[in-house]
Amino acid sequence: MNHVAAHHPGFLSPTGVEITFVLVGLATLGAALLTVTTRQLVHAALWLVVALGGLAVEYLLLTAEFIAWVQVLIYVGSVVVLLLFGLMLTKAPIGRSPDADSENRWVALGVAAAAAVTLVWVVVDAFRSTWVDLHGVVQGSSHATGESLFRHWVLPFEALSVLLLAALVGAIVLSRRDGESAGAGSTSGTGKEKS
């Protein structure tokens, strides 16, 4: 990276990619703000799709192709579908829901601002003069990502998989509690199950 950093372009001569990056970033920010401010529940979920998709485009612009598609697959394809499923199950009304306000607006704003400041500070501090070389080898290819994930970051990766397994087991336990207590509580219950 150093030889790139040695003659990096200045901030005052933005390239097309940089301009696109900033514009998509602004659109993503706008969609994110709408997500938390709109009073229509399903619209909030759809604005979340726009925000997450915008984030995927940003990853693409940073040449992290693999991460971008994972972002679309997991967040847009699964998490939002799960959210919409939940909203439909609870029969979210069409139009405004006046009670869609947790009255934690200021706390949420504080947490968001603190998180944003921390993240921006860390990223700026870490990558201050690093530039993505668009004409060289792709740095975010699936090969590079896989190699760094399973060489350098294999321990956090495995720890995360154990965490997810724990969450899975927890979900099964939570959802099966009724049947278990009925079965363990009375002998007639177990007899019923067997018959």
């Binding site: 693999f66 598609w69 697959l73 847009v76 394809g77 699936s142 090969h143």
Partner: peptide
């Protein structure tokens, strides 16, 4: 595409 398989499955899910 480098991660074409992922791209296809991701976009189909949308």
């Amino acid at each position: 595409l480098d991660a074409g398989l992922f791209f296809v499955l991701a976009v189909m899910g949308v």
